[in-house]
Design a protein around this nucleic acid. Structure first.
Length: 556
DNA sequence: CGCATTTGACCTGCGC
DNA sequence: GCGCAGGTCAAATGCG
């Protein structure tokens, strides 16, 4: 017991004096180990009584006896320790100073150690405090930046909403004008198509005969008699519907529903009823459009933030991988469905095809994808339905918020399908350049509440002359615009020719057209990313491809 | 036990 | 009219 204490203390000694003392201690131990042991057990090194007493005696010894006292203190240290208590005899007190010095050294060591520990603790605490304050400052900085961004976002949102309101107002005004000028528009369109087709393809087209203006009031009915004019009817319906629904649309926008979704929900009636007059237009089911997203993923599903329930799985022809069918379950009656299938050529590519629009608010995680698909669908639908203006309707290039790198309009799918290829590099979209005469306008706002209501992303820009015309220009200027576009861009001309050929039910004439794909590119492009115009008589099949991808679904 | 998934049957549209 | 293929339904099954 006593030996252990001695060893510890000896080990803790430092400095010359301490080394000296360690020798003293060793000698003491060697000399009196047998006697000291029972007494040491009762010793209290931490007693204040001892400390003050020892201190006092140590000073006295140092002054009076000097170093000699150290030499003589080698005997009976145990007794010395005991004699440090008050009331001991004088004879034993002679040995006391030397032992007290040793004790004092130990105590000094302890106190030094404790001081060191406290110092170290304070140092660590200071470091912590410093780091904590640095972190706090950083956090405050981030908070401040967050507030700044928030205010910017609010400002942008406000501006966007204001612009949106102005746009809606302008569209409403334009609607009334359009109704009055629709006859002229039809006449202008017919003559434009005729002139363009004669320009591109001099062969006579009997289909054009039905486009001759009849001059009767029931023009739509007459036009609907011929499937070749379905596109035009649809376009009129679309415009009328869009304009008519705008005021009521605001409600839908607010509650997150849209008529497109509802109509898409009724999948059993994809065909377009041919109205007898324009008053019946709102009952016409809207076209189904699909947005296919290609992304590399090993997971069976890409996480788009929505909740889906699988309701079916089929083996699709031409693909060894099964196609799974999912339904959005985030809200009761949500019409959105999606199909998930791995690419037959590249199993690492997951093809997710979305259909419909959500009729419920979306979580932030789902907003990006929903915006992307909505924007893509809007691009597709707005393009094809504005084709009455005689322009290549998909010739715009949205900056979709979800990093679409390539947009493909599929011609082989039963419904208009646009493919967003996320497997490509981000620069791929640069391949798709807008026509020179294009003007930038937001997407048509019909049926896409997510586009309207979500301030996260600005409205995807569409660069299209048709958009320009629809949103602002008078239909009377369409012919001029078409003429200018044709004159200015040969690619545009080729695309238009292909589109019009498609409209007229004739196979596309590849005048300067590099696309010869028969499967998906029947309505095809000119190889410059300028799409042809969809709008074949069967609306469901009216698809346009301006970029053929290897792994798009090929039903049938 | 409730919910999600699986899977075969059924429906519908389209081409021949 | 028939067959094919895509899409959907609903009972069966699995899982937590």
């Amino acid at each position: 017991m006593e030996k252990q204490h001695s060893r510890e203390l000896t080990f803790l000694h430092s400095g010359d004096s301490l080394r000296q003392n360690s020798g003293v201690a060793d000698r003491t131990l060697d000399h009196s180990s047998d006697h000291v042991e029972p007494h040491i057990k009762e010793m209290d090194f931490f007693s204040t009584q001892y400390q003050s007493h020892d201190h006092h005696h140590q000073e006295g010894n140092t002054n009076n006896n000097g170093s000699s006292s150290f030499n003589d203190s080698s005997v009976n240290i145990g007794l010395n320790i005991l004699s440090s208590s008050p009331g001991v005899s004088r004879a034993t007190n002679e040995e006391k100073p030397k032992a007290q010095v040793s004790l004092f050294v130990y105590m000094e060591m302890f106190s030094g150690l404790i001081f060191l520990l406290i110092f170290e603790f304070k140092l660590v605490k200071k470091t912590w405090d410093f780091q904590e304050s640095a972190l706090k400052m950083e956090l405050e900085k981030l908070n401040e930046e967050n507030r700044r961004l928030r205010s910017m976002l609010d400002q942008i949102t406000k501006n966007y909403n204001e612009l949106q309101g102005q746009l809606l107002m302008a569209l409403q005004k334009q609607a009334h004008r359009n109704q009055q000028e629709q006859k002229d528009a039809v006449n202008g369109m017919a003559s434009t198509i005729m002139s363009v087709q004669q320009f591109m393809d001099p062969r006579p087209s009997a289909a054009l005969d039905v486009n001759e203006p009849s001059g009767s009031d029931d023009k739509t009915q007459e036009l609907s008699a011929s499937p070749e004019n379905t596109m035009e009817i649809v376009s009129k319906e679309y415009d009328h519907r869009m304009v008519q629904n705008m005021p009521g649309k605001q409600v839908s926008i607010e509650d997150g529903t849209d008529q497109t979704s509802q109509s898409w929900g009724s999948l059993k009636s994809p065909k377009i009823d041919q109205p007898k007059n324009e008053d019946q237009v709102p009952e016409v089911p809207f076209r189904k459009a699909r947005v296919s997203v290609r992304a590399r993923s090993e997971a069976p599903l890409i996480s788009d933030g929505c909740q889906w329930r699988k309701y079916g799985q089929k083996m699709a022809k031409g693909n060894p991988c099964p196609r799974a069918y999912y339904r959005c379950t985030m809200a009761v009656g949500c019409p959105v469905r999606k199909q998930v299938q791995r690419c037959a050529d590249d199993k690492s590519v997951l093809i997710t095809t979305y259909e419909g629009n959500h009729n419920h608010p979306l979580p932030p995680a789902a907003t990006a994808m929903a915006n992307t698909t909505s924007a893509a669908a809007a691009m597709l639908l707005s393009g094809s339905t504005k084709s009455k203006d005689g322009l290549p309707t998909s010739a715009y290039y949205p900056s979709l918020p979800y990093a679409s790198s390539m947009a493909t309009l599929s011609a082989s799918a039963p419904f208009p399908t646009i493919t967003l290829d996320l497997t490509q590099g981000p620069n791929a979209v640069q391949l798709l350049r807008p026509p020179p005469s294009a003007a930038s306008f937001p997407l048509p706002l019909h049926g896409y509440p997510q586009l309207l209501g979500n301030p996260m992303f600005g409205p995807p820009k569409l660069s299209t002359a048709s958009s320009a015309m629809q949103l602002g220009q008078r239909p009377a200027s369409m012919v001029e615009t078409v003429t200018a576009a044709i004159a200015s861009d040969p690619n545009f001309t080729a695309a238009l020719a292909a589109a019009i050929s498609t409209i007229m039910g004739a196979p596309p004439r590849n005048q300067g057209n590099s696309s010869n794909n028969n499967d998906e590119n029947n309505n095809s492009s000119n190889g410059m990313g300028v799409p042809a115009l969809p709008g074949s008589p069967q609306i469901q099949q009216s698809c346009t491809t301006f970029s053929s991808k290897a792994c798009t679904n090929k039903p049938g």
